[in-house]
Every structure is written in C-alpha cells, then in structure tokens.
C-alpha cells in the first residue's frame, strides 16, 4: 500500500486511503497508435486495489509483449507496476521517429 506513496505520484494519489476503503481503484487508460484499433482511445476503468499494469492489459486484451512503452502519470514503468487510484496509464506499441 505505502508503495504508492514512494513513487513519483501526483497529488491525486493521496486519495489512496479512500481508494483502499473502496476496494477498487479507477484508472484512466489512454491507448495510442494501433492499440486503438477495435478498442478505444481513452477510458476510465475500475480494478481491484493492488492491481498492476498486467491486470489492465489482460482486461483490455493487449498481449504484454506488444507493449513497447508503458507510462504511469507520464513516467515510464514496468508491466508489474502496481497502480493507484486516479492513475493515468498510457500504452504504446513500438513507435518512434525523429
């Protein structure tokens, strides 16, 4: 639980205690490039407390290996990163340019 508070969180994360009571967290999911095909652009979704990015990927049926960039609140994170209530999760397939 306290893990979230050690991260680079935004102030929204301090509603954490409330979230714990709720049992659920709400995550704002933003998909980009081909991930949008047959899915959505942005959506708020609820997950059980202590859910990680992995659970979100399962729910929206994106194979883990297809994720090239995973950002939580604009910071790069691994797939096993634990999400907090109010987090914004941005997911990208391999993209680049210059």
């Amino acid at each position: 639980m306290g893990d979230h508070l050690n991260g680079y969180g935004t102030s929204e994360q301090f509603v954490l205690n409330e979230a714990a009571l709720k049992q659920n967290i709400t995550v704002f999911i933003k998909l980009f490039a081909t991930f949008r095909d047959k899915r959505f652009m942005t959506q708020h979704m609820d997950f059980p407390v202590r859910s990680t990015v992995r659970e979100v990927l399962k729910a929206i049926e994106i194979p883990e290996e297809e994720v090239a960039i995973c950002m939580v609140n604009g910071r790069s994170k691994e797939i096993d990163h634990e999400l907090a209530d109010g987090d914004t999760l941005s997911l990208f397939p391999p993209v680049g340019g210059g």
């Binding site: 933003k30 980009f32 990208f92 397939p93 391999p94 993209v95 340019g97 210059g98």
Partner: peptide
C-alpha cells in the same frame, strides 16, 4: 522485425511521436 522500423514508422510516419512526447510532458 523491429517494432519501430517495421511497424511504427511505416504506419504513422514520424508524427506518431506527438502523443508520446506530449504524454511525457
């Protein structure tokens, strides 16, 4: 086989960066 050169750049061109860079602030 590389995701960026085989998939990202061919599909969207370099402009695909707009959202990534914006998401990073």
């Amino acid at each position: 086989e590389n995701g960026v050169t085989g998939q990202g750049l061919p599909t969207y061109g370099t402009a695909v960066l707009v959202n990534i860079i914006n998401e990073s602030g």
